[in-house]
Design a binder for these strands. Structure first.
Length: 282
DNA sequence: CCTTATGCCTGAATGC
DNA sequence: TGCATTCAGGCATAAG
């Protein structure tokens, strides 16, 4: 499931290809995937591709913006004109050919390239919004953990409004801190040696420091490995991320802790599968 | 304020 | 083999 590192990887790639190019045609194959009128984006030029939390923002020349959320199984894969003609596409995990049966929206770009929005489960969406609507979306989102103003004091401060929440649930709250999903919540808490079930109010300052450091370290490390492909995440080229090899707890319930050999625990916390080491994490 | 359940979805994994 | 069931979970929303 695409979280901050996966979305960041896609955005960095798309930012190399898309700016200054024009959306020639927009094919919406699944109506519920595209919110708003596709006509308002057709013929418009892409100014910039960026990210806020887990959402991809594509700014258009008419002061409208495409807000793209991949949710669980969304993919945004770009194919150059050359790749489209020659074939021999990289394997996308949901079929080598694009479009495929999971393709929900196709952007035809002025240089002959195409951008495919694929989504097996149709949770994801592309929303066309105005500048003021975009501001409202941004206003609801929390701290960016990879901006330089992020630190343990800020983290403690924003989460202080939910003292009785379990720390893992609090980390998943996008109105407080953005970009952390189930994988990186578990990984960060393991690295910081904090039990997911601890309440926000129970954390000591030294633990806030460890947690903030762990979040930054894990997210940056994952970006450097082009994200985690646990199921069907793919980058903008259709390739898998490599961070799955670096995961310490996520997906490893019942296996041995890589630090102490204790058997990792697994259960549900706040409705999410949660894995932790009862020996390393306190 | 908090937690839990539900709905949106479909492929993969499991059970008989 | 095949059919039914369960699970995966981001996030909005409703309910307890």
């Amino acid at each position: 499931m695409p979280e901050l590192p996966e979305v960041e990887t896609i955005v960095r790639d798309l930012a190399k290809y898309l700016p200054h190019k024009t959306i020639k045609e927009l094919k919406v194959l699944n109506k519920k995937t595209f919110l708003g009128s596709p006509k308002l984006a057709t013929g418009k030029t892409i100014k910039q591709v960026s990210r806020r939390g887990k959402q991809i923002i594509i700014d258009l020349t008419n002061d409208r913006h495409l807000v793209i959320h991949l949710k669980m199984t969304g993919q945004l894969i770009w194919r150059s004109k050359k790749d489209l003609i020659i074939g021999g596409h990289p394997i996308t995990g949901v079929g080598e050919e694009l479009p495929n049966k999971f393709t929900r929206v196709i952007f035809k770009i002025s240089d002959g390239s195409e951008l495919f929005f694929n989504d097996i489960r149709k949770f994801g969406y592309i929303k066309l919004v105005s500048g003021s609507e975009l501001e409202i979306i941004f206003a609801r989102l929390g701290l960016e953990p990879l901006l330089n103003n992020f630190n343990d004091k800020k983290l403690k401060l924003v989460l202080a409004s939910k003292p009785k929440s379990k720390i893992k649930s609090a980390l998943l709250d996008q109105t407080k801190v953005v970009g952390i999903g189930n994988i990186y919540a578990d990984e960060s808490l393991w690295l910081a040696k904090i039990l997911p079930s601890r309440t926000v109010a129970s954390l000591k300052d030294s633990e806030w420091a460890a947690l903030a450091r762990a979040i930054v370290k894990i997210l940056q490390s994952s970006i450097s490995h082009r994200g985690t492909s646990f199921s069907n995440y793919r980058d903008a080229q259709g390739s898998s991320g490599n961070f799955i090899k670096k995961l310490k707890v996520y997906g490893r319930g019942g296996a041995k802790c890589l630090k102490c050999k204790n058997i990792l625990s697994k259960s549900k916390l706040g409705g999410r599968g949660t894995v932790w080491c009862s020996h390393c994490q306190k």
